[in-house]
């Protein structure tokens, strides 16, 4: 489909959707949101781009093969779960690091293994959905 309106609109929307997906990913720990929804929103962004400009340019914009993105995401989530062994906890126990906190008052910038896990979920969803969408698009 070649439509100048769609192509111009798509560029704007893709950028907005990708930023929104990151926002969803990051706010997920205290409010509704998270890696799954973020990944879906990002996938919607690339899907719109693929509809407007074709899967070839969508694949170029993505840079990596969607299935490989999903595999890396699975690796991230596994790593987040396996990290707990360093602290001697059970697998998938959340590990927190508060950057800039004084004596453990939990007020610094919170970085956690849960964020890594969610990032993994984000990548898995993005990669898996896009590989199906691209496969269907290219078949039609």
């Amino acid at each position: 489909m070649k439509s100048i309106i769609l192509i111009v609109g798509a560029r704007l929307q893709v950028a907005l959707l990708l930023i929104f997906s990151l926002y969803m990913l990051l706010r997920g720990h205290n409010d509704p949101g998270g890696g799954f929804i973020g990944g879906l929103i990002a996938a919607i962004g690339f899907t719109i781009y693929a509809i407007a400009c074709g899967t070839v340019s969508a694949r170029e914009a993505l840079r990596f093969e969607p299935a490989s993105i999903a595999a890396v995401g699975l690796g991230c989530s596994l790593l987040a779960g396996a990290m707990a062994i360093i602290w001697g906890d059970a697998p998938f126990t959340g590990q927190w690091l508060f950057i800039g906190a004084e004596d453990g008052d939990k007020k610094g910038l919170p970085i956690s293994s849960i964020l890594l896990f969610d990032l993994g979920v984000y990548l898995v969803v993005l990669g898996a959905v896009l590989s199906i969408v691209f496969a269907l698009e290219e078949n039609i």
């Binding site: 299935a67 490989s68 595999a71 890396v72 699975l74 690796g75 596994l78």
Partner: peptide, 8 residues
């Protein structure tokens, strides 16, 4: 983990 590496 093996699946991840084998896929990449």
């Amino acid at each position: 983990a093996t699946a991840v590496f084998a896929f990449l």
